[in-house]
């Protein structure tokens, strides 16, 4: 839930990157961190295992500039994608303003994508959110790999409502900022409704 601070004239919003294990959530944040100028970013925190799998979350604070005299700050989080970390995923979804679902385009990850999407929906539901009503975009990552499934197939499986989606190669930054801008825009548009 966004935090409007009239005292410091700031608005804080929380974006969560969700998706199956190894789909590239952490890589998205790492790319953003490496390519955002110093004044606009804070420290990136990664609570990870020794093999660099996300254990609890990654966190990256960004400030995007001002709207109507209010500084806009976005707190980016990733969840741990591995199936057995479900308890942690639920915690990180608390207070979310917008979700980016990062799908792994590889053919053999189709089922993992589908499971993760269903897991996202039910974890949100538990907290009273409806995935169809909150700011939400999809990123199809790993488009560079030869075993990437055709876009039509991924779309048919993961995006029946045809919400905004982006093709990406996260380590190279392709699609990374496009995805971030899209979700930030949806969140700000939602704020306008004053909900």
């Amino acid at each position: 839930m966004s935090f409007i601070n009239y005292s410091s004239r700031e608005i804080n919003c929380k974006i969560v990157y969700y998706g199956p294990g190894l789909c590239g959530k952490t890589t998205n944040l790492q790319y953003i961190y490496a390519n955002t100028n110093q004044q606009a970013k804070g420290k990136m925190i990664s609570l990870a295992t020794e093999t660099e799998r996300t254990l609890f979350f990654d966190f990256l604070p960004l400030s995007l500039g001002e709207i109507r005299g209010f500084k806009t700050r976005f707190h980016l989080y990733t969840v741990p994608g591995q199936v057995f970390y479900d308890a942690s995923r639920k915690l990180i979804l608390k207070g979310v303003d917008g979700v980016v679902f990062v799908a792994d385009s590889q053919m053999e990850r189709m089922e993992a994508n589908d499971e993760s999407m269903m897991n996202l929906r039910s974890n949100l539901q538990e907290q009273g959110y409806d995935l169809d009503k909150i700011p939400f975009v999809i990123q199809y990552n790993k488009r560079d790999l030869p075993n990437a499934a055709p876009m039509e197939e991924l779309q048919a499986m993961l995006n029946p409502r045809n919400i905004p989606y982006f093709e990406a190669v996260a380590p190279k930054g392709e699609g990374v900022y496009e995805t971030l801008k899209a979700i930030a825009r949806l969140i700000l548009t939602e704020l306008r409704k004053g909900t």
């Binding site: 608005i11 709207i67 109507r68 209010f70 306008r192």
Partner: peptide
């Protein structure tokens, strides 16, 4: 919300 009045332009400018 102080954001009730923001326009698409405001959001575009941010980016």
């Amino acid at each position: 919300s102080p954001f009730a009045e923001i326009t698409d332009d405001d959001i575009d400018n941010l980016f």
